[in-house]
Each structure stands twice: as structure tokens, then as C-alpha cells.
């Protein structure tokens, strides 16, 4: 079998995260071997001990920046990457660990670790895009593996990824899912949340909990106003906006609007 002389190099990098988004690449059971045929897996510690030197054609970056070392490392990765794609809520919005951004990190260290002086961490968990230029941000906590394949596919074939930025509601309506908020009064983040998960929660009778982060142009205040009228307390509203994408600006601002003063 003849191969093209040079396969594009794929690297997968990890920062503070749960590994779930990288796992989504290994979870592409039907496509994994085809991906491995299409690219040279140049750096992917979760899957291989082999490494190839940069520069890398595509770097997938998982996780958020939480340590001084990581804040340096991301720059070196950017320098060696032709295209840098962030995968998941941590890399794109700071992740669940960005809840620290609303507290004092010293208190957190003291509460978990007996010897706080051993711990080197930043006071805020920040997305990759706060540090370096990002070519494409793939949303989700975790990302949807079909969307990941679509992004790789698009990059490898030189086309734009079909990743829409509209609301989760669009997915519900296409699927014919009954609106849980209108028909059952269940608080739902769908109207302000980025589509892409594949319409998971509402069909289960559960309100969207915003794991894909803010959609394009979200009217978070409009949604919070409605939910408030439906009986959600400020504390509940703050909690809803302060989860896996807590540091994404629209969600952060909305949660801060419901701080108890």
C-alpha cells in the first residue's frame, strides 16, 4: 500500500482536566483506526509512549491553565502548532475548576492539602484562549465525539467544520423533543446554551444544564428573568450559570448578577 509521503502530525496536549475529552478521541471506535491511518499521532501520552518532534499540524488541547508552569507550556505548544484546537469546556472556558475564580484559592489548598506549601497553583483557572491564539474551540463537558471527528475531518480535508453555534433549542426542535420548560416547568439552560451535545437531557425529562457553554449571543438575563418568574431563587440561578463553563464571560456575568449582596 502506498502512502502519501507525509501525513499530517496530530498532537494531543493535556492541562487541568478530567481526560474525558481526550478519551472521546479513543471513544471514536469506528473511526479511530482510520484517524490513525490519516494522521501521524505525534504526541498523545494518554494513548502512546512514542513521540515525534514538532511542529505539529494539528494540536488538540484539553484542560485549563491553573499553574505557572502550564501558563508557560501553552506558549511553547502554540509555537510548535500550525493549528491549535481546544477540546472541551476546561480548555475553552476554564472548566469546573474555574469555580475557584469565585473564591480565595489559598483557602481551597488549605482545605484539601495538609502541607499547602507543596502546592503550586494559580488563583484562577483560565481557558487556553486567554493565553494564546486558538484556531477553533470545540465545546462541551465533555465534547461530542462526532463533533471531534467532524473537526478533524474538516481540518484534514481543508474545509470549514460544520459546528453550529446556535442554541440547544435548535437540536431539541429538530429532534421533536418536547420542551421541558414549557410543558413541565423544568428549568432549562437550553435557550442560552451552545448546541452540539446531540440533544441529551430534555428527552430524558431533564433540563439542559449548560455543559456546552454559552451559545452565540446568549440572552442570559432574559432567561434568568423568566426562570425567576417561574420560581427559581437567586441562589439557584447563580448555581445554574456557575458550573462547567462558569468562567465563560456570559455565564460568569449572569452568575455574578445573582450574587447575594
Amino acid at each position: 500500500m502506498t502512502r502519501p509521503p507525509k501525513k499530517p502530525k496530530l498532537a494531543v496536549w493535556k492541562f487541568a482536566s478530567c481526560d474525558g475529552c481526550q478519551l472521546s478521541l479513543l471513544d471514536c471506535e469506528d473511526e479511530l483506526l482510520a484517524i490513525a491511518d490519516g494522521v501521524a499521532i505525534a504526541y498523545f501520552p494518554e494513548a502512546t509512549r512514542a513521540t515525534l518532534p514538532g511542529p505539529y499540524d494539528i494540536s488538540l488541547v484539553e484542560g485549563s491553565i491553573t499553574t505557572p508552569d502550564d501558563a508557560e507550556r501553552i506558549h511553547s505548544i502554540r509555537r510548535r502548532s500550525k493549528r491549535l484546537v481546544t477540546i472541551g469546556a476546561c480548555a475553552t472556558a476554564g472548566g469546573i475548576q474555574a469555580l475557584r475564580n469565585f473564591t480565595r484559592v489559598e483557602d481551597l489548598i488549605r482545605s484539601v492539602y495538609a502541607r499547602p506549601e507543596y502546592i503550586d497553583t494559580l488563583s484562577k483557572s483560565t481557558p487556553i484562549g486567554d493565553h494564546v491564539f486558538v484556531d477553533f474551540e470545540l465545546r462541551g463537558c465533555p465534547i461530542d465525539r462526532f463533533q471531534l471527528v467532524e473537526v478533524l475531518n474538516a481540518l484534514l480535508n481543508g474545509r470549514r467544520p460544520n459546528i453550529p453555534h446556535y442554541s440547544q433549542c435548535v437540536e431539541c426542535k429538530r429532534a421533536g423533543t418536547v420542551c421541558v420548560m414549557v410543558s413541565r416547568g423544568i428549568p432549562c439552560m437550553g435557550p442560552v446554551t451552545h448546541a452540539g451535545c446531540g440533544n441529551l437531557c430534555p428527552p430524558l425529562g431533564r433540563g439542559c444544564y449548560g455543559c456546552f457553554g454559552p451559545m452565540e449571543l446568549p440572552n442570559t438575563a432574559g432567561l434568568a428573568g423568566w426562570l425567576g418568574k417561574e420560581g427559581c431563587s437567586s441562589e439557584q440561578l447563580r448555581g445554574m450559570f456557575r458550573t462547567y463553563n462558569a468562567a465563560a464571560a456570559p455565564f460568569r456575568r449572569e452568575s455574578e448578577a445573582h450574587e447575594q449582596r
Partner: peptide, 10 residues
């Protein structure tokens, strides 16, 4: 050296 994420206090 996986960075700590402080789940318990959060």
C-alpha cells in the same frame, strides 16, 4: 504533577 482541581472545597 497533575494540577489540583480542589473538588472537595468547591
Amino acid at each position: 504533577y497533575e494540577p489540583p482541581r480542589f473538588f472537595e472545597p468547591l
